[in-house]
Design a protein around this nucleic acid. Structure first.
Lengths: 196, 196
DNA sequence: GATTTACTGACGACCGTTCGTTAGGAGGTG
DNA sequence: CACCTCCTAACGAACGGTCGTCAGTAAATC
């Protein structure tokens, strides 16, 4: 089924070169068909792009849910740390996350609203997933800070890792992650429960 | 001098639509000239793009240096916090930072290396600037954690704010920044000087 | 008059898209 | 089994546009 193949190759190229930087000819070339044949399966370039976006959205949410489900019982420490490792691994082994992080910063203008809608849904849903686990940690006294604040701070930490991954330096990413994580963990387990 | 005007309008459009998403016709249109006239001042699109990139790099570095210089004597608390505010203001009032953050995630492939080189220079130089001030804070006992680690963690904090700014939600940015800063500050002033 | 600047005109290349057509298989009908 | 119809997938050819670019010319500035 070349319907799937087209989406797969489109995802790959979009994740590297973005919407305008990727032509239908390029995609078709990788699939091994002519660009006109793409129109058998998709209404046009916009349609293909949105389909790819949607797929990536659904899949990424699913993977996050699975992770949280399978690691919920671990200590918050390893739960959060391994989720970061999981995030990094996914970025390297899968085009979806790459597509996701890269295309949301400069989406094609005429599709901006649609892209942003999916993006916000993604962030909110993921944040909520993690908030549950963090709330749990707060209740058991594992952390002392307001769970909502901790959740947001962790979300910011994930954002920063995303940036580093995009910029490409593996050494840089590791170094920054190590430092940011260290400070983050000290912060959320701080004894003085300061008010915000 | 329309040489400057061209760069200015190019910067504006590149910062919104990226390299491929911006045409010379669009730029010329905003300047009020024909697209061919751009070739009087620049060798071509690539040349214009690199010039704009270079300008943004130099100017942003300069602004950071000025900030650090003028606020060095403040407490680390306000020094770092206000630098974040400064960062946010610059993003909103100036196209350079917008260009910078947006174009480094998906640079045009044939200019990738050049772009990345400038980017790394930028990050390293800024990190070093802040490290000096942080080192100073460590010496005076204002913070307890390894200055290098604190610098990296702060750099990560800036990254995450950059992401939020690009995504566009002002409310989201404020909320996340508040939380991330809170945890960050607790972390770097933590009493147990844990080893990394 | 020399030099800078912007213009007109045109170029080939590529863009996304539409058209009509062809090959091949699935499924039903006689 | 043979025949016909329908559907899917991919094709070549071509469309109107836009892209970046180059050459030559006119206008403005010094």
């Amino acid at each position: 089924m070349s319907y799937q193949t087209i989406k797969q190759e489109a995802l790959h190229l979009f994740s590297i070169h973005g919407f305008e930087g990727t032509s239908l000819a390029d995609i078709a070339n990788r699939v091994g068909i002519k660009k006109q044949s793409i129109y058998t399966h998709f209404k046009g370039k916009d349609d293909l792009y949105i389909q790819v976006l949607k797929d990536a959205f659904i899949e990424e949410i699913k993977l996050e849910k699975i992770y949280v489900q399978e690691h919920f019982e671990q200590t918050l420490d390893t739960f959060l740390w391994q989720s970061l490792q999981n995030f990094i691994n996914r970025f390297h082994n899968d085009d979806r996350l790459k597509f996701w992080l890269r295309n949301t910063s400069i989406p094609p203008q005429h599709l901006h609203d649609e892209v942003i809608t999916y993006l916000y849904q993604y962030i909110d849903q993921v944040d909520e997933l993690y908030l549950e686990r963090i709330q749990h940690a707060y209740n058991t006294g594992e952390i002392t800070q307001d769970p909502f604040v901790v959740g947001m701070a962790f979300s910011a930490l994930v954002d920063s890792i995303g940036v580093e991954l995009i910029y490409g330096g593996e050494t840089r990413t590791k170094r920054k992650l190590k430092a940011a994580w260290h400070i983050f963990w000290l912060g959320i387990s701080h004894l003085d429960n300061a008010r915000l």
